[in-house]
């Protein structure tokens, strides 16, 4: 049985009088794909942000286990969490949120340059990832010159290029049509779990969730169900 890469216990988080998380326990195994489902306001994005060290929970702990040992994410300061996200995690957002002024390859290479890699090498790696995701020949296009699906593939390349062991995706296909959505999900799964990495995604699309190995359902800040995909 594979080991856990993320272990969360007793997570609670409130925004003013709204309780977004109410004591969530969740463990994620290395190499699995986990879909977090739920209606709007169920707390799924807040949970994702807590697991990724973007938001610090009011109570509870999040541990990240890698080859270097276990890191208590919730015990890290702002700067250390930022470094952890940069070096160990990858992110794919609903709108891609790529930098519109940069070309596709520059957007991907930027993730490596932030970790200190020289630009030429970073762009070389970036081109490799874009080609692997079916975007060969589009490296020098600006983001506005790409379709929604192509832009999401650039976002996937950006999330993967650093060798992130866990990729967090927030509604990665939310702005795409069903055919493009299926393509993007395939690319996302091939580049993560297909290579032994872990994918944690938030979605309200049952079809997208069904492609993940495990699904947890959330309601009112709690996990109310868990299923293993066929």
């Amino acid at each position: 049985m594979s080991s856990f890469v993320i272990e969360a216990a007793g997570l609670s988080r409130s925004f003013g009088s709204t309780r977004a998380l109410a004591g969530v326990d969740l463990s994620v195994r290395t190499g699995e794909s986990l879909a977090i489902m739920g209606a709007s306001g169920s707390g799924k994005t807040t949970l994702l942000h807590c697991l990724a060290g973007i938001t610090r929970p009011d109570a509870g702990t999040v541990g990240f286990v890698s080859g270097a040992g276990r890191v208590e994410v919730t015990g890290l300061g702002e700067r250390e969490r930022s470094r952890l996200r940069r070096e160990a995690f990858g992110f794919v957002f609903q709108q891609g949120l790529l930098i519109p002024e940069l070309t596709a390859v520059e957007n991907v290479a930027l993730a490596l340059m932030l970790n200190g890699m020289p630009r030429a090498r970073a762009e070389e790696h970036g081109r490799g990832w874009l080609a692997a995701l079916g975007l060969a020949g589009m490296e020098d296009r600006r983001i506005g010159q790409l379709s929604g699906g192509q832009a999401q593939r650039v976002a996937i390349a950006r999330a993967q290029v650093t060798g992130a062991s866990v990729v967090f995706a927030d509604e990665p296909t939310g702005a795409l049509d069903s055919a493009t959505s299926a393509d993007v999900m395939r690319a996302l799964l091939d580049s993560t779990t297909g290579q032994g990495r872990t994918l944690i995604l938030v979605t309200h699309d049952a079809e997208v969730a069904g492609r993940c190995s495990r699904i947890v359902d959330m309601r009112d800040g709690r996990i109310v169900g868990e299923r293993v995909s066929a």
Binding site: H49, A52, I54, R79, S82, R83, L84, R85, R86, E87, F89, F91, F93, Q95, L97, I99, P100, A111, L114, R158
Partner: peptide, 16 residues
């Protein structure tokens, strides 16, 4: 604002 927020999530330091 939204882009700066996403860059922060990716781990880009505010100083950068």
């Amino acid at each position: 604002g939204e882009l700066y927020r996403s860059l922060d999530m990716l781990g880009m330091p505010v100083a950068t």
